[in-house]
Design a protein around this nucleic acid. Structure first.
Length: 246
DNA sequence: CTGGGGAAGGGGCCC
DNA sequence: AGGGCCCCTTCCCCA
């Protein structure tokens, strides 16, 4: 579903501008210099994600530096270096990067009441958030947040206040609902410049663009085969060629 | 079985 | 503080 259907001023942000995917041709595909990585790290399945190197060997568990990473963790972040890129994948400031790769849970329950606790209580409970920050706990799931806003955002995933008037399906956020509505209207504002195929979701377009790339951004570290999606690489890694990994 | 598309969820950042 | 938007990721289904 289009999470970015409200296309507006992406150019005003400093984030990666994926609107280029829609207005440029091959340039967007040049962002994934997988070949540079192909033979470097043969012990793990690695892949690029928009300039980041993903080490699939750690996906199911904890993030641990690979050999090449461990040897360079003290230096400044060099975006041209695969090992540094790999480090850069830890984009979350969370002290528990394990959550970065935890399978997402689709929570489908209702009637949740937000529950927060003062810092003192968290310390008594040994809350793993941080020593100096309060934890805002969701009463109906084990999640906890360091800000009330984040908790409220999360609570919406329980209450699902945004309801589709067409089919009655409920969503946590308005833009999720709007994206869902597109499944009813058939609107597809994101077009592929290579094949004119259109998508309702920018992320899906982005994934689609990978299918046009000669060298896809998710690469097996063992056989150097590349995949358009991480899920495909994971399948590949877990069943077949890369049995030695992950 | 594999690759790809559709749909959806969530956290983070910015306004 | 809340909403909007972005990106990433995952699951499901189909060719």
């Amino acid at each position: 579903m289009p999470r970015s259907f409200l296309v507006k001023k992406y150019f005003a942000k400093q984030k990666p501008n994926y609107s280029e995917l829609e207005c440029q041709n091959d340039t967007s595909l040049d962002r994934y210099p997988v070949a540079e990585l192909s033979s470097g790290d043969t012990s793990v399945a690695t892949c690029f994600s928009g300039g980041l190197v993903w080490d699939l060997s750690v996906l199911p568990t904890l993030y641990l530096p690979t050999q090449t990473e461990a040897s360079s963790t003290s230096g400044p972040l060099d975006l041209s270096s695969p090992s540094s890129l790999s480090r850069s994948l830890i984009r979350s400031p969370s002290p528990e990067p394990v959550h970065t790769y935890a399978p997402r849970q689709r929570m489908k329950c209702t009637g949740v009441i937000a529950h927060t606790s003062p810092p003192e209580e968290e310390e008594e409970r040994g809350a793993p958030v941080t020593a100096n920050r309060p934890a805002f706990l969701c009463k109906h799931c084990p999640k906890e947040y360091t800000s009330l806003g984040a908790l409220k955002m999360h609570i919406r995933s329980h209450t699902l206040p945004c309801v589709c008037t067409t089919c009655g399906k409920a969503f946590s956020r308005p833009w999720l609902l709007r994206g869902h509505i597109r499944t009813h209207t058939g609107e597809r504002p994101f077009s592929c410049t290579h094949c004119n195929r259109a998508f309702a979701d920018r992320s899906n377009l982005r994934a689609h663009l990978q299918t046009h790339a000669e060298v896809k951004k998710y690469q097996c570290g063992v056989c150097s085969r590349t995949f358009s999606r991480m899920s495909l690489l994971q399948k590949h890694s877990s069943s077949g060629c890369c049995s030695a990994t992950a």
